[in-house]
């Protein structure tokens, strides 16, 4: 039983990161019906920018670990958000009126461009975060051994997701995003600047993805230029699992995928871990083709 709960905590930590990345996929899909394939690479960018800022400004040294990391996260979030908005402006907006396939091809191209740009700037070798940023303390909870870092990272992602949910549901801008997701034409007639809404979506989604990249760097200590691919694939799966276009769905899907992976590895087979996760995805899609929370087709975001 102890092992079961230990595996649940392992799965939650991984799932929290999947969920945070999945939000970027699902928000963009909700508004544009476009899979932003470059999202995984924006996530990678977050990991690298975090490393650069951390080492060049010595943030944790000056501000202490906790405040330093918060400032760092805000800086990374801002920079990756700007990169996301620039990507939208350069790669997607000119294709707004084109067939959807053109935008998908453009997204794939943007992904290849970003991945290779990161490789050329930082090099093909993996880079390593400094070791002593976060305290290596573990909490012993009823026989469970949980590193403090994981608790901090899981709670940070839960807080960010809750904040996003409040932003979408309670604010005027959130209402505009929801309106644009339902019907862009009608939203325009109601006086909503849809281009601006799309820009906001491309600020928020990549911002969260960038923070997820930073978290991965802090938690696991290494970043390399291809890491966006695996995480992007998993997060995309999580978004579909929860119902793509649906924000709570991305959160549920991410956490669920992390749990399935950890428990599948624990009780069935480690080597078959991914196969099990994708099998569950297929089963869920057979029973519920719109994903777990994707029933309200009318309100996507």
């Amino acid at each position: 039983m102890e092992v079961f709960f230990q595996q649940v905590t392992n799965g939650l930590a991984v799932g929290g990161i999947y969920a945070l990345i999945a939000l970027g996929y699902t928000m963009v899909y909700g508004v544009l019906r476009l899979i932003n394939f470059a999202h995984g690479d924006l996530f990678t960018m977050g990991g690298y920018l975090g490393l650069t800022l951390l080492t060049s400004f010595a943030l944790t040294g000056r501000l202490g670990p906790l405040l330093g990391i918060i400032v760092l996260a805000i800086m990374v979030m801002g920079l990756v958000a700007i990169a996301g908005a620039a990507l939208e402006r350069a790669a997607y907006r000119p294709l707004r009126e084109s067939p959807r396939l053109s935008a998908v091809v453009s997204a794939l191209g943007a992904s290849i461009f970003l991945q290779n740009a990161i490789m050329l700037i930082y090099g093909a070798k993996m880079m390593v975060y400094p070791q002593d940023i976060l305290p290596k303390v573990a909490i012993n909870l009823f026989g469970l051994y949980i590193p403090l870092v994981r608790i901090i990272i899981l709670s940070a992602s839960v807080i960010m997701m809750a904040g996003l949910y409040a932003f979408i549901q309670k604010t005027k801008v959130g209402a505009a995003i929801r309106a644009a997701a339902i019907d862009q034409g009608a939203a325009r007639l109601m006086g909503i600047n849809v281009d601006q809404v799309i820009m906001i979506v491309f600020l928020v989604g990549p911002g969260l993805g960038g923070v997820a990249g930073l978290m991965v760097g802090l938690l696991y200590g290494q970043v390399n230029f291809t890491m966006g691919w695996v995480y992007g694939l998993k997060a995309f799966t999580a978004a579909i699992l929860g119902g793509i276009g649906n924000i709570p769905g991305a959160m549920v899907g991410g956490i669920l995928l992390g749990l399935i992976e950890a428990l599948g590895a624990a009780y069935i087979s480690i080597a078959w871990k991914d196969a099990i996760a994708f099998l569950v995805l297929i089963l869920i899609l057979i029973i519920r083709p719109t994903g777990l929370l994707g029933e309200r087709v009318a309100e996507k975001v």
């Binding site: 230990q6 890491m227 624990a266």
Partner: peptide, 20 residues
């Protein structure tokens, strides 16, 4: 006796099972 998936970041699930 088992295999992990190279290229991932989180191997805690595997380590927990190994420990068992």
């Amino acid at each position: 006796f088992d295999a992990l998936t190279p290229g991932e970041r989180d191997y805690t699930a595997i380590l927990t099972k190994l420990k068992e």
